[in-house]
Simulated assay, not measured.
Amino acid sequence: MTLRILVIDTDAEFTSAIYDHFEHNGDIVDVTERADEAKLKISELPPDLVVLAWRLADASGIELCRQLRLRRDSAQLPIIMLTERTDEAARVRCLETGADDVLTKPVSTSELLAHVNAVVRRHRPHLIVEALRLGGIELNRFTHRVQYMGRELKMSPVEFRLLMKLMENSGRIMPRALLLDQVWGSDVYINERTVDVHIARLRSCLRGTTADNAIQTVRGLGYSFVA
């Protein structure tokens, strides 16, 4: 599965480690240290999960968690809170405020990833469907493998994520800007022409399959996967 994760924390070293670890796992990570910016990001492009620290640059994580639970666009958003406090009262307060899970710092990126996956399994089960099957193509989110009639199709991580997003939204028009955000991340500044280049490469990967012409260009808008 590819998750979009928003990390809200002032610890630059820790957020850098999270970014590297989760991106390597195939997820898309966005980072901020401010509550006001976090709320804007959630409104513009809702993440699948939020990792929220107790201490932020402009507010407390507890207060931000409370505010997010009062908003329609984030009332059900999975939230994992991080705190340096070890007392039971702190953990209870986090949970009572609306956090789905609480971890005490320091925490390893591997442990955090395990908790992220556990929370997603509980609250966003549709995100962990193991395989997508369309047009004779089978895409496995867990193994990052794409197969056609038992034959593995070789493609880069970017082409894999691009195909996954198109298959997840089969029949819908996916604008280039949206694909850029969902495949490369909102903080990566690249030209929309990059999408066209990788679409061409992805089509080459699918050549010779029944999905050869599944990726259709919608002139002036973007692309659509039609199986």
Rank of each mutant, 00 (worst) to 15 (best):
M1D: 06
L3W: 04
R4I: 00
I5H: 05
V7Y: 01
I8T: 05
T10A: 14
D11M: 07
T15S: 11
A17R: 11
A17K: 09
I18W: 00
H21W: 03
D27G: 04
D27C: 01
V29N: 10
T32Q: 09
E33W: 00
R34M: 12
A35N: 10
E37P: 02
E37A: 13
K39S: 13
L40I: 08
K41E: 08
I42F: 07
I42E: 07
E44H: 11
D48Y: 00
L52T: 01
A53V: 00
W54A: 15
L56F: 02
A59V: 00
S60N: 08
E63R: 13
E63V: 03
L64N: 09
C65D: 04
C65K: 08
C65M: 06
L68Y: 05
R69L: 09
Q76A: 15
P78V: 01
D87H: 01
E96C: 07
S108W: 03
E111K: 06
E111I: 08
A114M: 05
H115Q: 14
V116F: 02
A118V: 00
A118L: 10
V120M: 12
R122A: 13
R124Q: 12
P125S: 10
H126A: 14
H126T: 06
I128W: 01
G135Y: 01
N140G: 03
R145T: 08
G150I: 03
G150M: 05
R151H: 12
E152R: 12
L153E: 06
P157S: 01
P157T: 00
V158A: 12
V158S: 11
F160W: 04
F160A: 09
M164V: 00
K165G: 00
M167F: 04
E168H: 07
R172K: 15
R176H: 06
L178C: 05
L179E: 02
V183D: 07
G185D: 06
G185L: 06
S186H: 01
D187E: 14
V188S: 08
V188R: 15
Y189H: 14
I190F: 08
N191L: 04
E192V: 03
R193V: 04
V195G: 09
V197Q: 12
H198Q: 12
A200F: 04
L202R: 09
L206P: 06
T209L: 09
I215D: 05
V218C: 14
L221D: 07
A227M: 04
